[in-house]
């Protein structure tokens, strides 16, 4: 226990300032009212869905949980199921084998809900494109509010996308 405490104290606080929302990432206009956004802004529950990614975007989504980006410090938490989520964070081109699962996950998420597409493949199909096995971008399958480009996008960009989704249009 002594070693653990010593290491925690020596490590100190690593958390950095979060980024600002970026209206450029928005795909469709903010649909939610200010009152709802205020609630989301204080305690947002995210369900992440890998709909066919190479796992690169997942690495960076893990990273937003690390001490530097500390997403939980902003009141944002990843949850284990869609039924208690407010926002879906979707990666990958949507493989045709994941199409039904993604739609069901979307349907299982209660309104009001938001969808953020993470990574080039989720935004436009990326290098995998559309094919016999791939539906391409996420918005081909479910409605998308905000897109975050990058291969993979940095943790800062992912945070920015999430914060944009819950910010009011100025």
């Amino acid at each position: 226990m002594y070693q653990i405490l010593k290491q925690i104290i020596k490590t100190g606080i690593k958390t950095e300032t979060p980024p600002q929302a970026d209206e450029g990432m928005r795909l469709i206009e903010q649909r939610l009212q200010q009152e709802i956004l205020d609630v989301f802004g204080g305690a947002l529950a995210i369900r992440q869905v890998d709909a066919g990614s190479c796992n690169g975007c997942e690495l960076e989504i893990h990273a937003v949980n690390n001490a530097y980006y500390n997403i939980e410090g902003l009141g944002i938490k990843f949850v284990a199921g869609p039924r208690h989520a407010d926002l879906l964070l979707v990666t990958g081109p949507v493989s045709r084998h994941m199409e039904v699962a993604l739609k069901r996950t979307y349907d299982a998420t209660p309104e009001p809900k938001l969808v953020v597409a993470i990574g080039d493949c989720a935004c436009d199909g990326g290098i995998f494109g559309e094919s016999y096995a791939s539906c391409g971008k996420v918005s081909n399958v479910i409605p998308v509010d905000v897109v975050v480009q990058g291969c993979p996008p940095t943790p800062i960009a992912i945070l920015q996308g999430i914060l944009t989704a819950i910010s009011a249009k100025k």
Binding site: G52, S53, G92, S95, M98, A133
Partner: peptide, 8 residues
Amino acid sequence: YVHKGIEK
């Protein structure tokens, strides 16, 4: 489930 036609 994530078969996305890489080889093709």
